Structures are given as C-alpha cells and as structure tokens.
Simulated assay, not measured.
Amino acid sequence: MTDQDSPAGPNPGSIDALAAQASQDPAQDRVRRSRNRLACGISALLLAIVLTLGGLLLRAWWTGSQFAAPDDYPGPGTGSVRVDVPQGANLTRIGRLLYDGGVVASVEAFTRAAMADPRAVSIQPGDYALRHRMSALAALGVLTDPANAGGLVIPEGRRAQQVYAAVDLRLGLRPGTTAAEAHRGAATLGLPGYAGGRTEGFLFPARYSVGHGTSAAALLRRMVAQARTEFAADGLGTGPGAYQVLVIASLVQAEAQSPADFGRVARVITNRLARGMPLQLDSALNYGLGRTTLDTSHQDITVENPYNTYLHPGLPPTPVDNPGHAAIRAALHPTPGGWLYFVTVKPGDTRFTDSYSVQQRNVAEFNRYQQQHRSSTPSARR
C-alpha cells in the first residue's frame, strides 16, 4: 500500500499524535492547566512584590531628599551680627543675606518659615541687629517687627532742614554735616533742572534703609530718586509746571489739618491764584522766617522776605516742605468748588467759604476758641 493509500490519521510517533493522546486524557489536562495557573499566579505575585518594594524605596528616597526638613538651628542664637536688608529685597535674597551672615542654618529654612507667616510680606528695609545661629523662626520674628528695622523714617511735611538734622542724628554725624553735603553736592543728587539745585520738595517722605556704610550723600540721593519715582506714579510730570504743582502740594501739606481737607485747601489756593488774590498763608510766611510755628502777628506780615505771601502775590519761590502722595494728588486734582477762604476753628473743624463776611465770623470764633485754650492767640486771615 502506498502512502497515498494509507488510512487518514496522525503518525503514532508524531507531535500531533502525542497531542491527540493528551487531549484524550482529561485528568492529565486538568493537572497541566492547574500547574500553568499556579505558575502565572506566583509570577504575578512576585512582580507585585518587586514593584511594591521598588515604589516604597523610591518614595523613601524622594521624601528623604526632597521633603526632609531643611537645616535649621534650634534656638535664639548667640552673640550679635547686623544684617542690612536693602530696599526691594525678596524673601530668598533676605534668606541668603541671613545665611551669609551666619544667622540661619539654611536659606530654605528661612524662606519656608517666611512663606508660612503673612507678616513676612511687610519686612521693612533696614539695618537689623540679629544673632549668630538663630532658628529661622527667631530671625523672622526680629525682621517682622518694624521697630527693629533701624532705618530712617521721613514723615510727610518735613522741611529739608529737618530732614538734614534727622540724617545727622541717625548716622551719628556732627550737626550740620548733611546740610553742608546737600549744598556742596547738589549737582550730584539727581535733582531735576527746574529745582535750581534746591532739595526742598524732593526729599520724599518714606522709610529708608541705613547700613554700616551708608553716607549722608547716599541717603539724599536715594530720597531724590524716590521722589522722582513717586512723582511719576502720581502723574506729576516734569518741567516748571510740575514745580508749581509741587509748591502747591507743599502748601497743602502744611496748611491742611486733615487729609480729608487736602482737596479743598488746594482749591482755595488755585481759586485765589486765578483771581490774583494774595495767598496770605502763614505756612509760607513762617518758612521764610525760619520758624515752624503757624502763629503769626501783624508785625510778622510786614517783614520783607520772598515767602511773605501777604506782601507778594502768587506762589512762594520754592516748596515749603516735602509733601506726600495725598497732598500731591490734591494739588493735581483739587476738589471742585468756589471757596476762597478757610480756617480751622478748632481741631477737626475746618471751615471753607467763598464769602468774606462768613470768613470773618469763622475767624472770630477761632480767636474765641484760642483765648479759651491758649495763653497766646494767633491770628487767622485766610
């Protein structure tokens, strides 16, 4: 019989034959499948264990390297060190200054503490007395107390001579040193050309940082630069027109008893200028006399000086102090009104009018109040 004539079916020794035999034994097939399932289960379990252990190890490494507490000292520190925080320094820069000065153990310890404390956004520039090896929280406590800033605060309305004296005192200089520096180095202070070399009006009221090497000239330059920045923010502009507004702002700062009155005082000044009326402002008169009091006598108004706005029409030749934002904005945008006179009858009671007769009654009431509360009676003519 030829191969072609052989009966159909697998060769007894072939793989197909063995498979056929196995398929014909159900018990063996079940055993084989059970063993396969067990092997797969064990493999999956081992893989899960490996992955879990790997994840735990990775998490432990990440936590240890990325989220571990930064280096920090444990207490209030020892000894003493001074750190100068400059204007505009952010928290990272402050942290770096503290770290470089040996105050904190790491920049990150300080920045983490600062970011968790809302007071940190108001850290003032200044020269701070701290200690070596302080905890980040202890250092932050010193920096967030404005009383520790050790800077120089120039209040609104201070005259240049008062600012000079404050700088002398803060820097431990002989009285008159800063004034001499202002006159000698006026050309290097950054004053605009229309200022004529005079600093009055350009020593902007603010807090200024003072470090070990701070000089009087450096402080004056910083004040003038600050003034230019703040003037631009207020929309003051430049040129002679801006200088006239600055003069008005200084008069508003000196005359108004409350910021609520700034706009109306500015309007009185502009209305009187528009009508050609003398300003008759005691603040300007006393500036020319070198006095800080607003008390004036009838004899005072006859004294010849360019700031005597009883004798000379128009504005005084320069500002009479260093005004702040509110006074500058009032001078730029006076409150609408027809007022020509004002007088502060008593604290919290400033009266404005366009009637001379009403003004006279207000002045009489002012004088009565003064007689009841003071031994000397100033005159009120506005």
Rank of each mutant, 00 (worst) to 15 (best):
M1V: 14
S6R: 08
P7R: 09
N11D: 15
G13P: 02
S14W: 06
R30Q: 09
S34G: 04
R35I: 11
R37W: 04
G41N: 09
A48I: 12
L53E: 01
G54A: 11
R59G: 07
A60G: 14
T63K: 02
D72E: 12
P74K: 03
G75A: 12
T78Y: 10
S80E: 15
S80T: 15
V83I: 14
D84S: 08
Q87S: 08
N90E: 07
L91M: 03
R93M: 07
Y99N: 00
G101L: 01
F110Q: 14
A113S: 04
M115H: 08
D117C: 00
P118Q: 00
V121T: 10
G126Y: 01
D127C: 02
R131S: 02
L140V: 06
L152N: 03
I154K: 00
G157F: 02
R158A: 04
Q161W: 13
Q162H: 13
Q162V: 10
A166R: 01
V167Y: 05
L173D: 07
R174Y: 05
G176F: 02
T177W: 13
G185M: 03
A187C: 00
G190A: 10
L191G: 08
L191P: 13
G196A: 09
R198E: 15
R198T: 06
P205M: 08
A206H: 09
G211A: 11
R221C: 04
E230A: 03
A233H: 15
G237H: 09
P240Y: 07
Y243A: 09
A249W: 05
S250Y: 05
L251G: 06
G263A: 13
N271P: 13
G276R: 12
L285G: 12
N286Q: 15
G288P: 11
D295K: 11
S297C: 03
V303L: 09
V303R: 12
E304G: 08
L311A: 10
P317M: 05
P317T: 06
P323R: 04
P323C: 07
H325I: 13
H325Q: 12
A327Q: 04
H333Q: 13
H333G: 02
P334H: 06
T335D: 03
T335I: 07
T344Y: 07
D349N: 12
D349R: 08
F352G: 11
S357F: 14
N362T: 09
N367C: 03
Q372E: 15
Q372R: 14
S376P: 02
S379G: 15
